Simulated scan of single mutants.
Amino acid sequence: MPTTGYLKRLTRRLTEDLGNVDAEQIAAESQATGAQRAAECCRGDEVSMHGELRSVETCSRAAKTGVKAEFFDGSDVVLLKWLGRNRIPGIEPGRKITVRGRLAEHEGMKVIYNPYYELQGTED
Rank of each mutant, 00 (worst) to 15 (best):
G74D: 10
R95H: 03
D45V: 01
R9T: 06
L79N: 12
F71T: 09
R87W: 15
A104C: 14
S75C: 02
T98A: 11
A28T: 06
R37A: 10
A35F: 01
L14V: 10
M49Q: 08
T58N: 15
W82G: 08
K8N: 09
M49Y: 07
D73L: 00
G94H: 05
P115D: 12
H106R: 11
S30G: 08
V77D: 11
R87C: 10
T11E: 13
L14E: 14
Y117I: 05
I97R: 03
S60L: 11
E40P: 04
C42Q: 09
R95T: 02
L80H: 09
G34Y: 03
Q120P: 00
A104S: 15
T122M: 10
G94S: 07
K68D: 06
R54D: 02
S30W: 03
Q31C: 01
T65Q: 12
M1G: 14
G34E: 01
N86P: 00
E57Y: 13
R37K: 01
I91D: 11
C59T: 15
N86K: 08
G66Q: 08
D76A: 15
G66P: 15
E92Y: 11
H106P: 00
P2H: 12
L7E: 14
G74C: 07
Y6K: 10
E46P: 12
I97H: 06
R37C: 03
E105Y: 04
D45N: 06
E46T: 14
R61W: 13
P93M: 05
T3W: 07
Q36H: 04
G44T: 08
L79V: 14
L18M: 13
E57I: 09
R12Q: 13
S75L: 06
M1R: 05
C59Y: 00
R87A: 15
G34M: 02
R87S: 15
E107R: 11
D76E: 13
R9K: 09
M49E: 10
K81L: 13
L103G: 03
T15A: 10
N114A: 08
G90N: 03
T33H: 01
R13I: 06
M49V: 07
E16Y: 02
F71R: 04
T3E: 13
R54G: 01
G84P: 08
Q36A: 06
V77F: 14
T11L: 11
L83P: 00
T122P: 00
I26N: 00
E24D: 14
T3V: 14
T11V: 08
S48I: 04
T33M: 05
R9Q: 08
